[in-house]
């Protein structure tokens, strides 16, 4: 196993709302390893984005706050450090790219300006001329054609895919140890999605950073990740390396997710006629059931699931699942 660079343990994030307090992330634990990617998968509202924002301490406060747990990075617990120390981590050691490349860039500054800004902040040893050169190098690295011209352009002059490349260039310009990608391809065309994911894979091989890939798309996970954590209602319900998870899902929710994707199964000769869906609704975070959160939708639920809550525990090697009745092979 390669070097562990980020350790998230029992992370709890709470939000105060008009209707009361909700726990958007409830005891999430995962590690990020150097040069490896962990995917965090789940539906909207499962707490995957909030977990990522918590690492960056970007949870809007109020109403949100990190209510518990630790985020260990370089021997320090990120929720405890001073804000100016956190700012030296942001964009420098841990960088983040967002779902909306259309709105995530500032419309009134040139893309060059927005890349240079982060270099000016974290790489103070560079001269203005070196910064300009590095900016162009970064644009070239993320595959933007004629970067000398593009550097002077504004975000609205670029396509969605190009803008996401610019976001990646901003994120990677200080060679961060960790890149958090929050649904980086959701807003893009399918062909562009593949290009961006390929680019991220390539840059990870070259720069060796750890990636946290937040997505609701299992296809993205299969393509980019080494390890996967499946989230449901603010908790990780299953975690395994990517091959194991796709081959032997143990949690009924994971299996349900996989079956709800159309498959082109040309080898088996078996044609699926209808997509399976997971019956029922995600419970409201205001009103979580006493036992397992997935109880009311689960095909293999038992009485025990209604009364007590399962904990994430190992089943085989590094494969962990939080289910009393994990699926057998």
């Amino acid at each position: 196993m390669s070097q562990k660079i980020l350790e998230v343990k029992d992370l709890v994030v709470e939000f105060n709302t008009d209707r009361g307090k909700i726990t958007a992330v409830n005891g999430v634990t995962f590690d990020v390893h150097k040069g490896r990617s962990i995917g965090i998968v789940g539906e909207s509202g499962s707490g995957k984005s909030v977990s990522a924002l918590a690492i960056m301490r970007l949870i809007p406060n109020p109403p949100g706050r990190i209510a518990g747990g630790t985020i260990k990075f370089n021997g320090e617990n990120l929720p405890d450090i001073q804000m100016d120390e956190m700012r030296r981590v942001r964009g420098n050691k841990i960088a983040m790219i967002f779902q909306e490349p259309m709105t995530s860039l500032n419309p009134v500054f040139t893309v060059g300006n927005q890349i240079e800004e982060v270099l000016e902040l974290h790489q103070t040893e560079l001269s203005p001329k070196e910064r300009k050169e590095k900016t162009i190098d970064m644009l070239r690295l993320v595959g933007i054609p004629s970067p000398e011209q593009r550097v002077k352009e504004y975000p609205h002059q670029l396509s969605g895919g190009m803008r996401q490349r610019v976001m990646i260039a901003i994120a990677l310009s200080c060679e961060p140890d960790i890149l958090i990608a929050d649904e980086p391809t959701t807003a893009l065309d399918v062909t562009i999605q593949a290009q961006i994911l390929e680019l991220m894979n390539k840059l990870q091989r070259e720069l060796g950073m750890g990636i946290i890939m937040i997505t609701h798309d299992l296809g993205v996970v299969a393509e980019t990740c080494d390890e996967v954590a499946v989230m449901y209602c603010g908790q990780i319900v299953e975690r395994a390396d990517v091959d194991t998870l796709f081959k032997y899902p143990k949690h009924p929710y994971t299996k349900g997710l996989m079956e709800s994707i159309p498959a082109f199964d040309s080898t088996s000769g078996k044609k699926k006629e209808k997509l399976t869906t997971i019956e029922g609704m995600v419970p409201s975070l205001f009103d979580l059931p006493a036992g397992c959160n997935f109880y009311n939708r689960c095909v293999s639920a038992s009485d025990r699931c209604r009364e007590s809550e399962p904990k994430l525990s190992p089943v085989e090697g590094s494969h962990e699942v939080s289910c009393f009745n994990p699926l057998s092979l």
Binding site: R87, N106, I170
Partner: peptide, 28 residues
């Protein structure tokens, strides 16, 4: 509350710089 403000924070910029550079220029 625009997304670019969150990006600026994620880059590690301080609140003053975000307000007087990024926000002000858009509000202009």
């Amino acid at each position: 509350y625009q997304d670019y403000v969150r990006t600026a924070r994620a880059k590690g910029l301080g609140e003053k710089l975000i307000l007087f550079k990024h926000v002000l220029k858009n509000a202009m």
